[in-house]
Design a binder for these strands. Structure first.
Length: 614
RNA sequence: GCGCCUGUAGCUCAACCGGAUAGAGCAACGGCCUUCUAAGCCGUCGGUUGCAGGUUCGAGUCCUGCCAGGCGCGCCA
């Protein structure tokens, strides 16, 4: 049951970010850095002339404003320094502004409210950013000076069963972050840490063996077509027959000791199970491939060494027959030291042991600078222990960032864990089927004139996209309520709304028989709707950077929803093709082209499939 | 018992390192299609951010204590 907490009895699971390590450096923003150095220079001036005490210098905070009337960026530096300077914040702000070096990127500087300094960026600075985004394959996103190698552990289903809704969040969120990291220029190594090893495989192999003898290969493939049924049948045999159960236990031992016959049987089972997973990935448009699979079994040969190394580092102690590591930071229910058990009294290894082996492999062989684990929030304590221990034992260098990107549970409309009507686990395949069917009905209702192929294509993009987007648009660490009606709605922050916004842009160019790449002329941003859209478009890079830093794709969702809304507003208020003035027409076409590319790239990073028409 | 987490509008969700008037969508109500896809746009209504203190120029955000709920806590994964 790797990566899957026992989820039967947990209607309201934990919702915490609980990443124990520091985040990578703050996102770069050229304008921010520029303003910071201007402010620092002004501070130096005021310190030199004695207005400010010599120890007044501190990190300058500068943020984007929420309200356009406050300019584009604001700093609270005058508020922070007012007390040490013994001045009123607004008076200090005034002196700071007077001391600011002039800069062509800054059009205006204001004092507002209690003493905020607001910066208005110059129009030609903005249009310069727009031009460079439009001219660049990466939409103006610079390449990192030091690309990182990031190992991302995600999806990681249990191969004993079919994928169910519990695997959705890890798979989708992990994939969106992976795509974003790659787009930003980092090297990503996907690790699908599947659960392909453990006692339950004895039961499955025993049943597989039995079925092969009784039914022959053809029936067998039919039987395996539904892994859930197969698992249940095996479990039933295990429970009702002692001889079967004994055989199952014997098979586990043989399997783990490397018996060829067992390994072949095991490989056969896993191949079928993995092909089911891959079919889901393909259907979902998830970038995982068979070569990303490195399951629990891959670490089997390392487990003894992991324990031996812990021992040689003096970390290991025996408790009630088990090999344990006790760390001061972790206490149990009696307030006594809480062990990480790495070897059971019967000699068997555990989940923790293979995770330690994986950590060492990822740091050593894969040379990870950073490791991200997209695993259920309920395993927060486990990962805290693993990360602390891996560094303590020297399996992972101190400077490597280890982060558990935990996520909450997907609940049904009643706020309880999402289940079938009779309380069973919802298979992912069934969920996706229903999403596509619902989308198909909706699309057909809107556009009955479309042919079957077009309907199916649109329904796939909308249906699958809706399911993914519903997840990706929410804060990862919270639980969320899964609701088909809401996610398939054409209104609000949904996949259909975003997809539709893109088709409207695409349609402008189709109508005009123009190539998006061939837009020309200068940006002329006179209308409020144009300015608002433009100002938001140039923020793409910093949004992606924060998605990569925090592992929170909903930041990108929110951004794209915002861009789509600003475009829709622009589209209503600013005629593009019918504009009389050629300069304005060209400018609007350029804005539309950059919007289209931003929306398209953004949606693709989230794993949606944008459509040219719908 | 100890630890972690959550509580924001009737509902579903936002709110960047503590910043300015807590934002969207749905629902309700009212406008806009002879003009680039109305799957759209514009507007109105809706809040003691669970409660009480504290820190701060400033608190949904930090601290303390309550209330409600969830999750985790020795040989499962």
């Amino acid at each position: 049951m790797l990566r899957e907490a026992c989820c039967e009895s947990s209607p309201f699971p934990v919702q915490s970010p609980a990443s124990q390590t520091a985040q990578s450096p703050p996102q770069k923003n050229v304008m921010k850095e520029r303003l910071i150095s201007l402010i620092e220079s002004a501070l130096d001036t005021l310190i030199d002339d004695g207005t400010l005490p010599a120890d007044a210098k501190r990190p300058v905070q500068i943020d984007r404003t929420r309200d356009k009337s406050h300019g584009d960026f604001a700093t609270n530096i005058a508020l922070m320094l007012a007390k040490p300077a013994g001045m009123k914040p607004r008076d200090l702000a005034e002196k700071l502004i007077a001391a600011l070096p002039s800069d062509s990127a800054v059009a205006k500087v204001d004092i507002a409210g209690p003493g905020f300094i607001n910066f208005f960026q110059a129009d030609d600075w903005l249009t310069g950013l727009l031009e460079s985004a439009l001219a660049d394959d990466f939409l103006g996103i610079g390449r990192p000076e030091q690309p990182q190698t990031v190992v991302v552990d995600y999806s990681s289903p249990n191969l004993a069963k079919e994928m169910h809704v519990g695997h959705l969040r890890s798979t989708i969120i992990g994939d969106a972050v992976v795509r974003t990291l790659e787009f930003l220029g980092h090297t990503v190594i996907r690790q699908n840490h599947v659960g392909d090893w453990g006692t339950q495989f004895g039961m499955l192999l025993a049943y597989l063996e039995e079925q092969k003898a009784e039914e022959g290969e053809r029936e067998l493939s039919r039987e395996l077509a539904n892994l859930e049924t197969f698992y249940r049948a095996a479990k039933q045999r295990f429970d009702e027959s002692d001889t079967f159960a004994d055989r199952a236990r014997a098979l586990v031992v043989k399997l783990q000791s490397g018996d060829d016959y067992c390994l072949n049987l095991w490989a056969e089972f896993n191949q079928v199970s993995l092909s089911h997973c891959q079919a889901i990935y393909d259907r979902l448009g998830v970038s995982l491939t068979p070569s990303d699979v490195r399951g629990e079994s891959a670490y089997n040969d390392d487990l003894a060494q992991v324990v031996a190394d812990l021992d040689s580092k003096g970390l290991l102690s025996e408790s009630q027959g088990a090999q344990c590591v006790f760390m001061d930071a972790f206490k149990n229910k009696e307030g006594e030291p809480l062990p990480v058990i790495v070897r059971k009294a019967d000699g068997g290894y555990l989940y923790a042991t293979s995770d330690l082996a994986a950590l060492r492999y990822r740091a050593g062989t894969l040379q990870a600078d950073r490791m991200l684990y997209f695993v259920d929030q309920r395993q927060a304590l486990h990962f805290q222990q693993m990360f602390t221990l891996a560094k303590l034992a020297g399996f992972v260098p101190e400077q490597t960032e280890l982060a558990h990107m935990g996520f909450g549970t997907m609940n049904g409309p009643d706020g309880r864990p999402f289940k079938t009507r009779d309380g069973g686990t919802v298979k992912l395949i069934d969920l996706l089927d229903e999403a596509e069917e619902r989308a198909y009905a909706l699309v057909k209702e809107k556009n009955p004139q479309l042919d079957e192929d077009a309907l199916r294509t649109i329904a796939r993009s909308v249906g699958i996209g809706a399911v993914k987007y519903a997840d990706l648009s929410k804060n990862r660490s919270s639980d969320y309520i899964f609701n088909f009606e809401q996610m398939l709605s054409f209104e609000g922050n949904t996949a259909p709304y975003l997809l539709y916004a893109y088709t409207r842009v695409a349609s402008v160019f189709r109508k005009a028989e123009l190539d998006m790449a061939s837009v020309s002329g200068d940006f002329l941003l006179n209308e409020a709707a144009e300015q608002a859209l433009a100002a938001r478009l140039v923020q793409f890079a910093e949004v992606l950077q924060s998605v990569a830093d925090k592992g929170q794709p909903h930041l990108l969702s929110a951004y794209l929803y915002d861009v789509a809304g600003l475009f829709s507003s622009f589209y209503e208020h600013c005629p593009i093709l019918s504009s009389e003035d050629e300069g304005i027409r060209n400018s609007r076409l350029k804005l539309a082209a950059l919007t289209a590319r931003t929306l398209k790239h953004g949606m693709e990073l989230l794993g949606l499939s944008p459509l040219e028409r719908m």
